[in-house]
Simulated assay, not measured.
Amino acid sequence: MKVPMLDLSEQYQILKDEIIETLDSVMTSSRFILGDNVKQLEASIAKFVNANYGIGVANGSDALHISLQACGVQAGDEVITTPFTFFATGGAIARAGATPVYVDIDPVTFNIDATKIEEAITEKTKAIIPVHLYGQAADMDAIMEIAKKHQISVIEDAAQAIGAEYKGKKIGEIGDATCYSFFPTKNLGAYGDGGMIVTKDQQLEEKMKIIRVHGSKPKYYHHVLGYNSRLDEIQAAVLNVKLPHLNKWSEMRRENARYYTQLLNEKLGEKIVTPTEVAERYHVYHQYTIRVKNRDDLQSFLKENGVASMIYYPVPLHLQPVFAHLGYKEGDFPEAERAAKEVLSLPMFPEMKKEQQEYVVNMIAKYYEQ
């Protein structure tokens, strides 16, 4: 059996007629930039996460960068975040001219360890970017309390966590701004690049909408240095078709995660560590990520037996060559470094069949029987 990391074909077949119809309407209208589909999606996403405003942008990386700029982060400032995340998180901070300041992770959730944030704050700290990794929320109560105490902004990186919840609140209604990615592999994926920022703050929304169009308002009059980052109508149209299905897809992912955990615990016991869903957090399982000691060898075995897997992420940001000038070294963030050597994400998508999951687990068990 071949088990892919992700299979979008069944989802497309279910939605095909509606998607083709809505794409035809975009072509017929001949309005491709910041039209009605983008406006509809901005309003719908904001409502979905209990925010007031949505700002469609070109991708999730730009969502982070624009949010930082709108929150006043500039050259010489510091922004606290996790070293165990996709490069875009640290990259956005650096592109804003600020310095990423890393804090180690909680080994259970893989998210930033909120108990270590305050000791990293200096007079230069302007923001915190918690990343809701793999689809589970970070400890937002503690983070917001620290931010309020020190009067710094909180920009949530929810690229993997649309639909996730923290203590009954949607990820999107807690921080000053929340950033989503609509990359095709995400839980809500476009058919190309796309991103969104949500906020409850009208002044931030106004700034973000100006920044995404070269910093102009009115058109051709530029008071701030922005750039071109707009969600296009085609991607918005696709996402408008998909959004009503997102809650159902999240529940399907959660059911798949439950079945994985049941099978893995039955067959492998303590040989691997399955994901922990913390109380009062609604995990949307963008990835189902296990921890294993001999990760690279297991991954090679799975590949030989037709099972795809991925490592998110093999090199923490503080050890990336591009950030060498920050002066971090191996050993500075032991939990992030240990996770980078042990994590392995297994195939996960809503339409995954039980027999596919059983095959994946059987292959893992077979590896350990050698």
Rank of each mutant, 00 (worst) to 15 (best):
G97R: 11
T82M: 08
L64Y: 04
V57T: 03
F48E: 08
P83H: 07
L34M: 15
A46Y: 04
D62P: 05
V101N: 05
P100Y: 04
R31P: 01
E18K: 05
I45K: 05
S67W: 02
M5W: 00
L34S: 11
G90R: 01
T22I: 04
P100W: 03
S29K: 03
G76I: 06
Q40L: 14
S30M: 14
F32P: 00
V73W: 02
D17L: 07
I20E: 09
F84L: 13
I55F: 01
L8M: 09
I20N: 04
V73N: 08
A46K: 01
P100T: 07
T28K: 12
L15H: 06
T28L: 12
G72K: 13
V38F: 03
P83Y: 08
C71M: 11
G54Y: 09
F32C: 04
N50H: 14
F48M: 10
L6P: 01
V38A: 05
I33N: 07
V57K: 02
L6T: 05
G76F: 13
A88M: 15
H65T: 13
I14Q: 12
A51Q: 01
N59F: 10
K16S: 06
S30A: 15
I80T: 11
M27G: 11
P100A: 08
F84Q: 02
N59S: 12
L15P: 01
A92M: 07
E10V: 08
K39L: 11
A70V: 07
A75G: 12
G60D: 06
A63T: 02
Q69M: 15
D36A: 10
T99L: 12
L34W: 07
F48K: 13
M5K: 10
S9L: 09
V57G: 03
Y53K: 13
F87Q: 12
M27D: 13
A75C: 15
I55Q: 02
S9E: 11
A51R: 00
T82F: 06
G91Q: 15
D77T: 10
I45S: 02
V101Q: 03
S67P: 12
A75R: 15
V57P: 07
D62A: 10
E10D: 14
G91A: 14
L68D: 05
A58E: 11
K47M: 06
T22K: 12
G97P: 00
M5F: 03
L15I: 07
G35D: 10
S61H: 11
D24M: 14
V26E: 02
S29C: 05
I20H: 03
S61F: 11
L8P: 05
I66W: 05
P100F: 03
M5E: 09
L34E: 15
A92F: 10
A92Y: 06
Y53A: 05
L41D: 00
L64T: 02
I80H: 02
S30Q: 15
D62T: 07
